[in-house]
Each structure stands twice: as C-alpha cells, then as structure tokens.
Design a binder for these strands. Structure first.
Length: 1008
RNA sequence: GCGCAUGUGGCGUAAUUGGUAGCCGCGCCAGACUUAGGAUCUGGUGGAGUGAUCCUUGGGGGUUCGAGUCCCUCCAUGCGCACCA
C-alpha cells in the first residue's frame, strides 16, 4: 500500500468538512484559547509561499492546543475594503464588490488546499454590510465619547455636556481648547455653536487640518501610510494640504498605549517601534519676550503687543543659559509679526523657497538653510538678547514649532551656528571641544547663573521649578504621534453614519445602520477633494431630518451625507471581536461571549503593521473597554511576527551601454549560457525566448540532456520538441520586467518527456555570439508578482501534498526569521512522510503494524519525542519539532518498530503538523473517531531515564575522551574513575591535578 | 546619522540554563537494487594531515576550570526611525 497523498488529503478535507470537525462552540466548560492570524487583504495576485507561513504556524498551534484539551478559536476572514480593488475598478470597470468576491473565492480555494482548521462559519468580511454595520456603530461610540482626563478614560459626551453646563470651559475633565466660555455662556449658545465646541472633544472628530494628500490616489493618507514622503501604496508623491477631515483622537491614549506595552508579549523590536512612534518626551515650555531691537531695555514695539512672547518647547531647560539663538518653523504664526523691515525681503525669499519644495525634496536634501528675522528674544534669566531665526529644520507640527537653540549641546543647533557664524556659549566646560556638540547630562554647568555648579541631570528639575515660579514656563509632555486621519476620499470603504445639517454633523440612529454603500459604476473623485460618493446626489441628499433626538435640536432643512469613507484600518481594528460572535445582529459582540474568549492568546502576523493596525486596534479596544462594551483593554496577549519569505529573482540582463536602445536581437542571435548551459535566443520584436541545450552528456550509449533553466513563471510554453541533437523549447514571454533591461529567469522546472523537471541553477556570465553580453545573476528580494519570483503553493501541494508543504514551510527555519525560499529541500520532508508511511505499510508486504508489546527502546524513542514535540510546539520552535519527528521515524525504522502502541501516540503528536496523513493512518489503525479529538499523549519520564551517562572528560578544558559513569555516582568516586582512565593518564603526563570539576549529569574537567 | 537585530559547513539550520559545536534536511561522494532513476535502501561528508593530532562558530581582545552562548572593540548584513528640540 502506497502513500497516495492526493487521495488522502482530498478524502479527509471532505470528511472534516462534512462532519464540521472545526466548528467551535461558545458554550463549553473547557478552557479557551484564541489563536488569530492577521486576516489577508484578498488581492488578485493570490497566495504565494510566504503568506501561509504564519497561517501554518497558527494552525499547528491551534490543533496542538485542541489536543491538550482547550476550546480553540481559530478563525479566518478578509480585510476586504481597500484601494487596489477600487483602482482595479477604475481601470477595468469591474465593481470592487465583484472583483473582491472573485479574489476571495480564489484565496479560499488556495487556503483549503493547505488543510487549515479554520472555523469557516465564523468568517468575516469587512466589506459585508452585516459586518460594517458594527464598524459604523463603533465609530458612533467614539463619536459620542470624549476622553475624561480625570478618570483617564473615554466617557459618553453627555458627561462633558453636564460639565460644561456646570463649569463652562474651566472643567478639568477634558482637553483645554481654544474655546473659552462660562457655564452661563454655554447655556446661552445655540445648538450649532455647542456642537462645534463638542466636536473638539469627541474621540472621533471632524476637523480642519493639515493632512497628507496624495494626488495620484486622490485621497488623504494616515502618517503610517506615508513612507519617505511618498505613499506606501504605489509610491506616489504626498503633499501637505489643509482639508476638512475626520480624525481619531488617539493622542489621548498615548500614555495608556505606552503603559499597555508592559502587559503584553510583543517582541522588543515591536514595542520599540510603537514607543518611538508615540514618541513621548518630557520637558518644559518656556516663554521668551520678543524685542525688535537687540537692546534689553523694555521698549514699546510697534505692532508688537505686551503679550507677544515666543513659546518654545525643550527637553533640556537646564541649558537655558547656553541659548545662542532661537529658531522658528517657516510656518510659525509669528513669522510676519517679528520680521523687521530690514529683513523682510530675505525672509520672504526664504519662505518662498521653503514653500516651493516638496516634502520629499525637503527630506532628501539636508543642507542647512535659514534666515534671520531681525528680532530678538530675551533670556528671562540674564536678559541677553537672542536672535530669532527661521529654519525648516524646526517642524511646525511638533511642540510649539519653535526652539531655543543650544549649540554646545545639540548637534543640529551646533551645525546651524557654525554655518551662520553665530557665537557659541559654552556652558559645559571641557565637555565641549569647540568642534562637536555634546548632548551630555553629566556635565557640571558653567556660565549658567543660578544653575552654576549643578550637574545637568539635576539642574533640569531646578530650572523647571524656577520657570514655573516666575510664571514664564511650565512642565510639558510632548508626543510625536498625531491624531490619526480617519477619512478617505474613496468609494470602497465604510460610509460614515453621519448626516450634515447646517454644517453640524449628526450621527445616525443605531436602528438606521448599516448605512450601505450605494451601488455605483463610476469611481472618479468628487469636487473639491471630496470622495466619489459626492457625485451621487440621490444618495448624498437626505430630504428631511430623521426623527429628532437630543443631539438634533436645531437641525433643519436639507441634509447631506458625509461623502468620505473610512480608511482600511477601520474594519481591522475590531475584527478579532466579531469572530467571537459573528452572526449577532443585535450587538457587535455579546458581552458574555467576549468575556469568555477575552484576549487573543496568540496573534501571528507580519511586522509591517507595527505602528498602523496594531496601534489602532489597541486604541479601539481600550475605548470599547472604557465604555463598558468589553472586559479587557488589550486585544492581544502575545504577538509572534512571522518572517518574510523572500523570493530569489534570477535574471539575465544586458548591461547598459553594451547595446543601444532599439537594437533588436533576432532569432539567430544565440546566447550561450556557459559550458553546461543551453543556447538561448531572444527576439525583442516578438517576445519569444528560446532555450535549447548546447550540451549533452554521454552515459553508456544514452545521450542525456543537461537540465537547464527556463523561466516558466513569465514565459508560456509553446512547444516542446525533442530532436536527436538538441532539445528545443519555445516559450512566449508573457511580459517584460522594466528595470535593468532585465529578463527574469525564475526558479522553476522544465518540461521534458511530458513531465516537469527541476533545473540546476548557477550564476554565470552568458557568453555571447554576436557581440552582446548577457549576464545572469540572482537577487534575494521581496516575493512579488512584478518581480517574477513568486512561488505558488498550489503547484507544490499538487506535487508533494499539503502535509509535506506544511512541514517543509516549518522546517525552513524559525518562524520569526526572514529567509529566501528554496524549493530544493522539500524532497527531504516528503521522503520523511513516505518513511513514516512505511512504518505502517509496505508496498509489497502490505500491513506492517502489529499489536505486540513495545520494547523499552521503542518506548524510550516515543517518550523522548513526546517531550521534545510538546516543548518545541509550546515555544513555537516548529523547525526543531519537524526535525524531532524525522529523528523519531529514523530511529523507529532502525529498530524495525511497527507496534501500534508506539505508532498511535506518534500520530497524535504529528497531527498538528501533518493532519491528513495522521488522520488516514489513525483511521487505518482501526480508530473510528477523528484524531482531532484525541488527547495529547502524556510524557512518562520513567521510560527515558538513564542510569548512566557517557561523560565528556576534558583536561584543562580540552575534550580528550568520554567515560561512561553511573548517574548516581558522586564527586569522589568520579575523580577516582577519571584519574584511573588510560587516556586521562596519558594527557596528565604524570602531573597531579590541581582541581577536578565535576558537574553531575554534564561533564568532568581535570585541571592540571 | 541614531536605534534594534543577526553573523555557525557548499546551503537552510541545531545546540532551551556557560558544559561533547555542527542535530535534522538539502547538496555532494561511493555502493545496492534497477531498462532507467526522478523511486527506495546502505555507508560517508566542517577543514588540514598517511597518522597520532591540530585548526574551526565574522575579525581582535577579555572574564572563566570551561565561551557559539557573557563583556569590550572592530567589521559585515538586515530591519526600524530619520531633523520630534
């Protein structure tokens, strides 16, 4: 009986399906365990071998936990809203819903091939109205909440209204805003005005601010979606633009997002990234009086009121006596006021120069630039007049948009001072060498007035104290993180459940949800930065206000729907909750059920979501927790980041200059790919690549053709013609990659005698016949369709089976590590499964397994393996677990062990890794119930305990021999045995040992 | 530039706490069975040397009876941040 993996895998996948073997109940006495994968965006490209890596790891862990007696939730779904579907729609006229559904069908087929234990009854799709109804509902919860700074949590906005009614804007519960009003004022205000004020406090709010606008994509992007000044998707230029946008007030959660990191198991790298993104720093804000002339005498300036002060933010108030100039951002509001007439032209030129440059140019070029305003700030402690400069190295968006520059302590300030020859005051003595700034906190301060003689580290507090005492400064905490832009000018996203009346945003009633996306057939942008939805007036216009509620007093006339849609991360910020209770149409997730499942115990996914999805979903979870909708405030207990599987791109290329543009290479231009490589000819006019063997080897009287590479992924096989002397395969090139004039030769196989064969890869310079050199090389890079280096799991599964594929992906190395894909090793894993099969069945002899009692040796092998697999699986060391299985099967084969009592537990160990073969053999052993419900075998230490050990014996730390010594033997006796050993005596050369180190169960070291 | 990782055979990797470096697999070499090998099996495989033995975990230094593992330093690669005052 043979291992027919195709039949076996099909059979059990159907059986599990029919028997609903993966259905998970919410109602059980078992302990729970929640294993979650980052759900995929269903792109048209389908899965490559990198995608399933994390899914396989989580699948193994889920199955393992199930065997250990847990009720395991292991769901899967689709992050189905997003830009690519809409771009595809624009280009091909296919509705995003249609292409998305098509892609999902594809994905599902590919996922099913691998044999995952997902409970598909719990599938979610973020683009499904039944799902996004609750995304909209959660948005409304955020909209109707504010962050109470006293209780430090989100609370209903009604609470804030009560505060305003009682205390006006002096309430301490919420952020201070530009609005100043008394309780009486509040009551006087009309609803419209009140709503404007409330908007500035809501957790989801609409504001007018500078956003990342991407013209090419026609939408606004969040900070984490912009990389190096261009859009993360597509690499289009991004500019700053002032627009009306929705935001999430994530900044209010900055401290709790930081604090929560201590309570969750994320990698240090991941925590570091989030910490940096939040970017908390503490220091002080200091006000400096402004003078239009350098004199310290208080003079009445024209156009400058008494209140005109320059407010800066610094983390180092201890350096205040080292301030030699001030720098304000070019966008700073005081620029105009403080520019003196003499400097006006220069300043205007500089501002014009700054404005003319894109964000990208600004980042790329780091030349020092700036301009003096003509004005001065007064150092409050020594009345020194400090020139105020404008420079783009100070960012308008951070702190106060102005800094006090301390050149001896800050590198950037130092460079600026040197560049503009501004005199530098040294306040740190020998710590400053005149050449480089030194940001030390250890120096003893000099030239620093009342701070003289203090160590900087301690002076910080003293300086802040003094500033606060004088009322010219205050302690201040700053964050790099900004509120998250939450609206997109796109079609394919969740519509906002908001209707505008007279410029006031009114939330829709829960009963009116979901607000469905209208079916449309055009996706072009609306007017003035509006989304495509703005073009559909019958959807946008709401004839009369819906039933009034307390927020709608004053609403009247025609209403208009919000035409922006929510960003991609909206749906993914809470999907882990919906899986728990996916069909509930009364609430987003029943509280009892979310209390049962609680946190995601294990979350597996890539590092690319470090500061996007992972931060947003943490914030949503905290907000839902604050509002009492769930019982935990961190969504993920443990996060494991799978490494990226890179592709190896093989390419043949022409060096620029070796041939001129437009030169065509005819079919006769044959390229020889080195001594053992085939001839190839490329016709650029007719995209055709011919490869044929130049070389064959003689074996006896047979002529065999050397295997060679043919880029099957990007060329299509036309004909396969074998002649006596040469193998002639003609291939049509599907498309040309754009860079380097390169042709990618992709790892693959070639077709010969009606079969696919593996090919040999080598790096060679291709010798040329007609004067043009082609070179080949390989490069490890991200696996991507555009690079022709994608390995599709389907073909591998077809050739080797899902079990082999699963185990091979794990065998490749630790899950967290990124590595290039290499198909070659898969044979070894496949051989292992065949070898396992042969412990049960022989092709000729048939059934091998027996009911005989196992020997001590066999039991030892089994229990050693139980221990190893259990420990390795528990610590996500799946590669070593696969290796342990191989060792076990090798040893059992050596022992000719075919005993059911050994093999049966082994199958249970194996079933998380290779579920199909395990279930088949389990069934063949006569079991009637599924192996999925078996119990993980218990490790019995007694089977593996040894009575003696082969001790390594070293002389002076160098291993010289090994001696078998009983494990219960103590130091004294060991010394005697060791010293009497021939080899040891030889190496001691008659000397007396100084010391004998004996570590029981480990080793012996004789020191002479 | 700053921060964080990682460097082990021809290749992917193993060594969980400082205690026999190289497990397992690929590849390669030899052999068996074969029309054939792309199936299967057996043996070998870090390097040098006939050998005893010596060398070997990116380079150098240190701590220790003992270092792939800890410390210092340099080099290389990868990732993250990039004027955040």
């Amino acid at each position: 009986m043979e291992y027919k993996f195709r039949d076996i895998e099909k059979k059990w996948q159907d059986w599990w399906n029919v028997n609903q073997s993966y259905k998970v109940s919410n109602d059980t006495s078992k302990p729970k365990f929640y294993v979650l994968d980052m759900f995929p965006y269903p792109s048209g490209a389908g899965l490559h071998v990198g995608h399933p890596l994390g899914y396989i790891a989580s699948d193994i862990f889920s199955r393992f936990k199930r065997l250990k007696g847990f009720n395991v939730l292991h769901p899967m779904g689709y992050d189905a809203f997003g830009l690519p579907a809409e771009q595809y729609a624009i280009e091909h006229g296919v509705h995003p819903a249609t292409s998305t559904d098509q892609n999902i069908i594809n994905f599902r087929k590919q996922l099913d091939n691998i044999g995952f234990c997902f409970d598909w009854d719990r599938e979610v799709r973020t683009s499904d109205p039944a799902y996004y109804k609750w995304t909209q509902w959660i948005f409304l919860q955020l909209y109707q909440s504010f962050y109470n700074r006293i209780t430090n949590k989100a609370e209903p906005i009604e609470r804030l209204i009560k505060e305003f009614e009682q205390f006006g804007s002096s309430t301490k519960t919420s952020r201070t805003t530009v609005h100043q009003f008394t309780a009486a004022d509040w009551k006087e205000m009309d609803a419209e005005k009140q709503q404007h004020i409330l908007m500035d406090h809501r957790l989801a709010y609409c504001g007018f601010g500078e956003v990342n606008w991407c013209e090419a994509l026609g939408t606004v992007l969040a900070n984490d979606e912009v990389v190096n000044g261009v859009s993360e998707r597509g690499g289009h230029p991004v500019i700053k633009k002032k627009l009306r946008q929705w935001y999430l007030r994530i900044t209010e959660y900055a401290d709790r997002l930081l604090e929560g990191l201590d309570r969750i198991e994320f990698s240090d790298a991941m925590k570091e990234m989030q910490t940096n993104w939040i970017g908390k720093s503490s220091g002080a804000e200091i006000d400096f009086e402004i003078r239009l002339t350098p004199g310290p005498s208080p003079d009445k300036e024209k156009g400058l009121g008494d209140e005109a002060v320059l407010r800066v933010y610094t983390t180092r108030p201890d350096t205040i006596f080292g301030v030699d100039f001030m720098v304000i951002a070019p966008e700073h509001e005081l620029v105009e006021q403080i520019t003196t007439p003499a400097q006006k032209i220069e300043v205007d030129e500089y501002i014009f120069f700054v404005k003319s440059r894109s964000e990208r140019e600004r980042m790329a070029e780091k030349k020092i630039s700036g301009v003096f305003t003509g004005s001065y700030a007064l150092n409050p402690f020594d009345q020194r007049a400090i020139p105020i400069w404008i420079s783009e190295y100070v960012l308008a968006g951070y702190g106060t948009g102005a800094i006090m520059a301390v050149p001896c302590g800050d590198e950037r300030d130092h460079k600026f001072a040197k560049h503009y020859s501004i005199p530098i005051t040294n306040i740190i003595g020998k710590y400053y060498n005149g050449e480089d700034a030194n940001a030390t906190k250890e120096a003893v301060l000099e030239n620093s007035g009342f701070l003289n003689g203090m160590v900087m580290r301690n002076a910080i507090e003293v300086a802040i104290g003094k500033l606060e005492e004088l009322g010219i400064g205050m302690r201040k905490v700053n964050y790099k993180m900004r509120d998250a832009a939450f609206s997109r000018q796109r079609y394919w996203g969740e519509p906002f459940p908001i209707v505008w009346y007279n410029g006031v945003a009114y939330p829709m009633e829960e009963s009116e949800l979901p607000l469905e996306l209208p079916k449309v057939d055009s996706y072009s942008s609306g007017p003035e930065g509006e989304g495509p939805l703005a073009n559909f007036s019958e959807w946008v216009n709401v004839p009369s206000p819906p039933a009034p509620n307390h927020l709608r007093r004053g609403a009247g006339g025609e209403g208009k729907r919000e035409t922006n849609t929510m960003p991609g991360y909206a749906g993914s910020s809470w999907y882990f909750l919906r899986y728990m209770d996916p069909h509930n149409n009364q609430t987003f997730c029943d509280r009892k059920i979310s209390d049962y499942w609680g946190q995601v115990d294990l979350y597996i996914g890539g590092t690319e979501h470090a500061v996007g999805h992972l931060l947003y979903s943490r914030m949503w979870t905290k907000a839902l927790y604050d509002l009492g909708h769930i019982g935990h405030d961190e969504p993920y207990k443990k996060l494991v980041n799978q490494g990226m599987i890179q592709g190896v791109s093989q390419m043949a290329y022409v060096r620029k200059g070796d041939f001129e543009e437009g030169v065509s290479i005819g079919k006769s231009n044959t390229i020889n790919l080195g001594p053992n490589f085939p001839f190839a000819s490329i016709d650029y006019n007719e995209p055709m690549l011919q490869l044929f063997s130049s070389d064959f080897i003689n074996e006896g009287n047979k002529e065999l053709y050397k295997p060679f590479n043919i880029p099957i992924e990007f060329v299509e096989l036309n004909t396969s013609d074998l002649t006596r002397n040469k193998l002639n395969v003609e291939l049509a090139i599907k498309s040309y990659p754009q860079r380097l004039n390169a042709i990618y030769i992709v790892p693959g196989a070639f077709y010969y005698k009606e079969k696919w064969w593996a090919w040999n890869e080598k790096q060679t310079k291709i010798e040329v016949i007609k004067g043009i050199s082609f070179y080949t090389s390989s490069e490890v890079e991200k696996m991507s369709k555009s690079k022709y280096n994608v390995i599709n799991p389907d073909s591998l599964i077809d050739k080797y089976g899902a079990d082999t594929f699963r185990m091979y992906e794990m065998f490749l190395g630790p899950v967290e590590i990124s590595k290039p894909w290499d198909t070659k090793g898969i044979e070894g894993v496949h051989r292992f499964l065949k070898k396992l099969w042969r412990l049960f069945y022989d092709e000729l002899k048939g059934k091998l397994w027996t009911d005989e009692k196992p020997t001590a040796d066999e039991l030892k092998v089994l229990h050693k393996t139980i221990k190893k697999i259990e420990e390795d699986t528990e610590r996500f060391s799946f590669n070593t677990a696969v290796s342990a299985f191989m060792i076990c099967v090798n040893e059992l084969a050596d022992l000719k062990s075919h005993k059911k009592e050994i093999l049966q537990p082994l199958l249970i160990l194996l079933t998380p890794y290779a579920p199909h073969i395990a279930e088949e053999l389990w069934n063949l052993l006569g079991n009637t119930s599924s192996i999925l419900n078996a119990a993980f075998p218990a490790f019995e230490a007694s089977y593996v305990t040894e009575s003696s050990k082969e001790y390594p014996v070293s002389i002076n730390g160098k291993l010289r021999t090994t001696i078998v010594i009983g494990l219960d033997i103590e130091q004294g006796e060991v010394e005697e045995i060791v010293l009497n050993n021939d080899v040891v005596q030889k190496w001691m050369e008659g000397k007396t040992p100084k010391k004998i180190i004996f570590v029981k169960g480990k080793m012996v070291n004789v020191v002479i």
